[in-house]
Design a binder for these strands. Sequence first.
DNA 1: TCTGGGGTCCTAGGACCC
DNA 2: TCTGGGGTCCTAGGACCC
Length: 415
Amino acid sequence: MESAATILHADLDAFYASVEQLLDPSLRGQPIAVGGGVVLAASYEAKAFGVHGGMPGRRARELCPGLIFVGGNFREYQRLGDAAIAVLGDFTPLVERISIDEAFADVAGCTHLFGSPEEIARKIRNRVRTELGLPISVGVARTKHLAKIASQVAKPDGIVVVDGSAEIAFLHGLPVGLMWGVGPATETRLADAGITTIGQLANANRHLLERLLGHASGEKLAALAWNRDPRRLQPHRRAHSAGAQSALGMKPARPDIYVPALRHLADRVASRLRAKSRPGRTITARVRFADLRSVTRSITLDAPISATAMITEVAEELVRGVLAQYPSERAISLLAISVSHLEEHSGLQLELPLGLADEKHRPGTRKGQARWGADRAMDAIRERFGWEAVGYASVALGHAGSVPDAFRELAEKEL
DNA sequence: TCTGGGGTCCTAGGACCC
DNA sequence: TCTGGGGTCCTAGGACCC
């Protein structure tokens, strides 16, 4: 039986910039950028000049001489983002949040209470506008993929409903770049094969697509191009990994530089893992050199860990291995640590990095327990006084223009 | 369009087991 | 000793998303 168009994708427009314009009316109608060294978000007025998120502040100023930089009220972004998603939750519990400013909802079960999906979408937009003062675009369709595309087409501040009979006509006229999973690299590859619209992709030779994009991607994109999207909503997704990274500018590849930097990164990751009792078995370290080439090394342990000192030492070992392998590289431009294979329980009694451990790291030893004690004490102090109160200072990273911790937190997923 | 940070998923080769 | 096949896990890299 044919299902109806009951999936909504709601997406706040130019979110951070819209919040700034809400908080300071003199910014309304002005080209503004949130951030400083790096543009974290741009208003539509700034986007018209080609300014966009991730762009260096200098470049943005060149493109848009009148650009106004604003500091960033991160607490407000979190609060208003949560509030907007909560509006969806007033209609249905089937909400899958994708990021701070974006979520899917399936309203199939609540149309008898609130009206058609389109009416619900209008109510959501109205409420977010009147109660929060923010513009939000909504796409309504039968699948997640199409709902997401519809909301992109609806921007700014609009609504697009794609009903079952119009799906293919709607989809096939649009550029392939709008598809979920088609980024710059894929777009270029497709364009080289003469494929620029979703319709052309849909009708392309299957073998050609698989040769171009690989087996899974080719098959997946072909299915999406015919609006065959098997993905259901996943209201309670949890993260499969947690990581932290830091651009260093250009620092010498020496232990006195990378060891404290790694400890700081490990501390950020490990305290998150401990807070949710989700230690992980696989530790990955990434080193980016001066020329922006990066190398990753990972190791999977027999038991999960979440102690700062353990993660630091494993990461150190991995980075040492990378540097030994590339002795001619004299400078590091970025370091990253990620922990994956996350498990559910707290691993207090299980912390040992097998293969790298020497006697002093084994659980039950005085040193091992002292380390755990230190972590737990730190966690407790932070609980009361905030993250900055104690810990491995970022002095070693200390490079100007790096992103504030508050912004990092906005991007963190629920563990 | 070379710039920041937190994530997800796919691929391909190799090790290892049955 | 060599041959074949299937499955799972690990590792490294890349593309993509917000």
